[in-house]
């Protein structure tokens, strides 16, 4: 077995690849949670994005259009979520869980209609597939959200909606409106995370392909204390461990090979250890989840 090459270009590229969907999803979650809406529906939004991205890229023969349509579809799907949580004041955990299940069930239903198959969508040819421009765009999104949150009036509104909604109301700004918009952007961005899975990291949508990445993104968000740049770092930390996990499998250390399962649980153990307070108190928005 080869030695582990942590400082090589290929390792860095691998980290960037596996982090890309996480970066989108974590920033999406940040927008929603900053405005006070608990967001565990990221997985569902990602699935919607992975699916719609693959479908539109297949139909239009353009992955860029597919990527764009993933944003649109994810954002539209967010209306349902907002209707339940923002308008009808449903418990966001319940609604988010339901939303995830809805997407798991709805997509095979749609694929049956479009492609007469409950499985994956037709593959996207290699010349159409997206590449690292997606990752670059993900970093741009982080900067954009950083700017939005800390430098613009809308950003302050979003923060107020999460920290002190009564203050926002007193200024004559509708809290619900701010939350609708935040969740709208959240849906779109998380869907881009999904689309980067189906158009960049692989070549088609296959059922349940997100594999828990929405929840990993959520823990990256908590790790980053609900701040855009630290959240990005959180995503990269998970990326590093995932890429490391791939390289550590079956590599003997002093003649002793660690069982694969132990290496595979690394990212999950890390989540628990880090969230258990290694990085100090994580400060959630004060009104997160309160109505």
């Amino acid at each position: 077995m080869g030695e582990i090459d942590i400082f090589s270009l290929s390792f860095i590229l691998s980290v960037l690849r596996v982090s890309t969907p996480l970066i989108f999803a974590a920033q999406a979650g940040l927008l929603s949670e900053k405005s006070g809406v608990v967001q565990i529906g990221l997985e569902g939004f990602m699935l919607a994005g992975a699916f719609s991205g693959a479908v539109f890229a297949h139909l239009t023969h353009s992955s860029y259009l597919g990527f764009l349509m993933a944003f649109v579809c994810g954002a539209c799907a967010s209306f349902l979520f907002s209707l339940l949580v923002v308008r009808l004041k449903t418990d966001a955990i319940v609604a988010g869980t339901g939303f995830n299940f809805l997407m798991v069930g709805l997509i095979p239903f749609l694929t049956k209609f479009i492609f007469n198959s409950t499985g994956s969508t037709p593959p996207i040819p290699i010349e159409l597939r997206l590449s690292y421009e997606v990752t670059v765009f993900a970093f741009a999104v982080v900067l954009g959200i950083y700017f939005l949150i800390s430098k613009t009036r809308w950003g302050y509104w979003i923060q107020f909606a999460g920290e002190y909604p009564d203050g926002l109301t007193a200024c004559g700004v509708s809290v619900d409106k701010v939350r609708w918009v935040s969740v709208f952007l959240c849906g779109g961005l998380a869907a881009l995370g999904g689309a980067s899975l189906s158009l960049f990291l692989s070549s088609a949508y296959s059922p349940l392909m997100t594999g828990g990445r929405g929840f990993i993104a959520l823990s990256a968000l908590i790790l980053g204390k609900w701040k855009p740049l630290p959240t990005l770092m959180g995503c990269l930390v998970f990326g590093v461990f995932d890429a490391l996990q791939i390289r550590l499998q079956g590599v003997p250390i002093n003649g002793f090979t660690i069982p694969v399962q132990w290496i595979q649980i690394l990212p999950y153990v890390l989540t628990i250890v880090l969230l258990a307070g290694f990085f100090g108190r994580s400060q959630a928005p004060a009104y997160l989840g309160k109505r």
Partner: peptide, 14 residues
């Protein structure tokens, strides 16, 4: 390590 393994092309590619 979970049943997702059979449906994770992105990880397989990596």
């Amino acid at each position: 390590i979970t049943a997702d393994s059979w449906n994770n092309p992105a990880k397989a590619k990596e």
